[in-house]
Computed example of a mutant assay.
Amino acid sequence: MKISYKTEKGIFYNGDLEKVLSSKKFEKYKGEINLIFFSPPFPLNRKKKYGNLQGQEYIDWLSNLAIKLKDYLSDDGSIVIEMGNSWESGNPIMSTLALKALISFLEAADYRLCQQFVWHNTAKLPSPTEWVTKKRIRVKDSFTHIWWMSKTEYPKANNRNILEEYSKKMKRLLKNKSYNSGRRPSEHNIGEKSFLTNNNGAIPSNVIVAANTVSRSPYLTYCKENGIIPHPARMPLDLPEFFIKFLTEENDLVLDPFGGSNTTGEAAESLNRNWLSVEINEDYIEGSKGRFSKIKK
């Protein structure tokens, strides 16, 4: 394990994750991390350059990781995991491996499942190709699940930090102070003043719509200028930003154990949070430097 670089708010470690979590130097972070946000390698049937396990081996690996990460999480901290979908090899049938891995992850460390989110990627290419674009017997798979869990039923969280702009209709309602109140067919009784309070925004749903369609950015420019191939599975900044705002406060500590191109570190730094990232691939780490204006030696 070694420190690849530091910024004003964060540190990027280069090394094998399991060895990093077991190292004496990293032990100082035990119980100090407020949010662990990551997207582990998916249990895909076809091997990717960034690595992925399969079958029971994947489940066992993720379960072991759950136990090790728990030691580093603060008592009111959260873990947020993006879990992609996978398909049975050679068949137009979805695999249940990701779900089995999730349940095993929860049970291995006795986490509480706080809420399920869906990331709808509007720019995702049609897949799985064999069944969607060739034989035309499935529709494209354009979402992944994001699972929020913690040690306790009441981790730190505040949805006031992620309010969305009111719709035009809601703005008009607040202005006119009038709407159709009364009992609905659903048997809900809407009071005459139930929706007249201006809360400065609407509470978002658990469906996050975001596309990673950025063609120009400091990160991509840096990679091009330095002959670095960009990370093949980057996520949009919107995802880590949403959960960092929702589940942490300024100067809290955020960890991405699969740092990759360090989208999480960039989001944390921009929101005045401290961050740690771990990545085994040195090329990914080198490219991630393009996300920061000031790198400390």
Rank of each mutant, 00 (worst) to 15 (best):
G51Y: 03
G84T: 08
W61M: 06
I11Y: 00
L102G: 09
Y284K: 05
L271N: 08
E241L: 03
W119Q: 05
N14K: 14
T221I: 13
R183V: 15
P43G: 04
I11S: 01
I295K: 01
S178Q: 14
K100Q: 11
W61D: 13
T96G: 10
Y154H: 11
A157N: 09
K140V: 00
W148A: 11
G15E: 02
N176T: 15
L65P: 13
P128Y: 07
K296V: 08
A66P: 07
N34E: 05
N64D: 15
S277D: 04
W148P: 04
N159W: 15
F117W: 14
P230R: 03
N161H: 12
T129Q: 13
K168Y: 10
I285E: 01
K28F: 03
P257Y: 03
F26Q: 04
Y154P: 00
L53S: 07
F12D: 00
I162D: 05
K171Q: 10
L237V: 10
A98G: 01
G182Y: 06
E225K: 15
I3C: 10
S150G: 05
L106S: 02
I3M: 07
I67S: 10
E192V: 14
A211S: 14
N64F: 08
S39Q: 07
E32S: 09
D16E: 12
G287L: 12
S22W: 01
E8P: 09
Y29K: 04
F243Y: 10
F117M: 14
K70L: 03
E187Y: 14
G260P: 09
M1A: 11
T152V: 12
L35Y: 07
T221R: 15
G15K: 04
Y179G: 02
K2E: 14
G260N: 03
E107T: 13
G10E: 03
S261Y: 07
L237E: 14
S217F: 02
E279A: 02
R172S: 09
L237F: 10
E269G: 02
K48F: 08
V254K: 05
Y50K: 01
L44V: 04
